[in-house]
Amino acid sequence: MERLLGNPRAVLVLLGPALLVYSLVMLVPIVWSLVYTVYEGNAVSGFEFVGIDNFVRFFNDPTALEAVGFTLRYALILTVLQVVVGYALALLYVFYLKKASSLVRTLVFFPVILPTVAVALLFRRFFEAAPTEGPINSIMQFVGLNTFDWFGQPDASFWVILMMDLWRSMGFYAVLLYAGVVEIPEDIIESARIDGAAGWRLVRHIILPLSLPVLLSATIFSINGTLKVFDSVVALTNGGPGTSTTPLTVYMFQTSFSFGQYGYGSTVALMLTVMCLLVTIFIFRASRRDLTRNDK
């Protein structure tokens, strides 16, 4: 029996194809991309060895540094928004809507599966100022404010992207966190209630500490996704006005495919990867320290 389930030829037959495709299309290109970082050029014009020039250029490139800034700012704020709003919705589902929450859960989840491109094009019209006024500007005029060009100004564009992505993803985080909150044993909450904890105090001292693990995984998931934001930005602002809403992913795409700089593009991609790893490790570390402090 053990011989059969450990048959090396069968392992090769079953695992081989997947491992081969995965290695050729993902692992080999990752290493290849690392090699590109010390070259400059592209597939058509040929390559030239440049050493660490690409990295020197990256740290002296104002557009690249602006992209790092945008990516971090966007990822941090959106992660906080996603987790906080998602958690608030999860609490609403569990403690207010209770058994009736299924329909609301399903409806609020719906935008999650919509194509980002469709949502972004829709929100573009929704916030439009000219030639036609979108609903947002119409409402602003109705209450006596001036029409505002949301996409003509860096900060406003930034917030429109955030609002759209929150709209798109809050249902997802609500369901993810709902699964964690609903598993908190009923008797713990009940005994806390008998001890007089209610409302905010119940959440703060009982429910929040008990949902820390699922909050942590939601945060890590969220930050990893938001650091890689691409679709929303490309379809909503295309990085503009100017380069003010260009994240690293879009900057990598532009340097690589618009300007044909494979070496520099790979360097930007590597920086993005390093950033994802660092942020994830940082959150892991920070959360562990917090947990030990709570234990004392």
């Binding site: 058509v44 890689k228 992913t249 690589s256 790979s266 590597l270």
Partner: peptide, 25 residues
């Protein structure tokens, strides 16, 4: 091997686009 696969979930796709573009070309 399972860990090697799991690593692929984390890596941004931007890391593989350029080499793939060259290969397909």
């Amino acid at each position: 091997v399972l860990l090697v696969f799991l690593a692929g979930v984390m890596i941004p796709l931007q890391m593989i686009l350029l080499p793939l573009f060259t290969i397909y070309f």
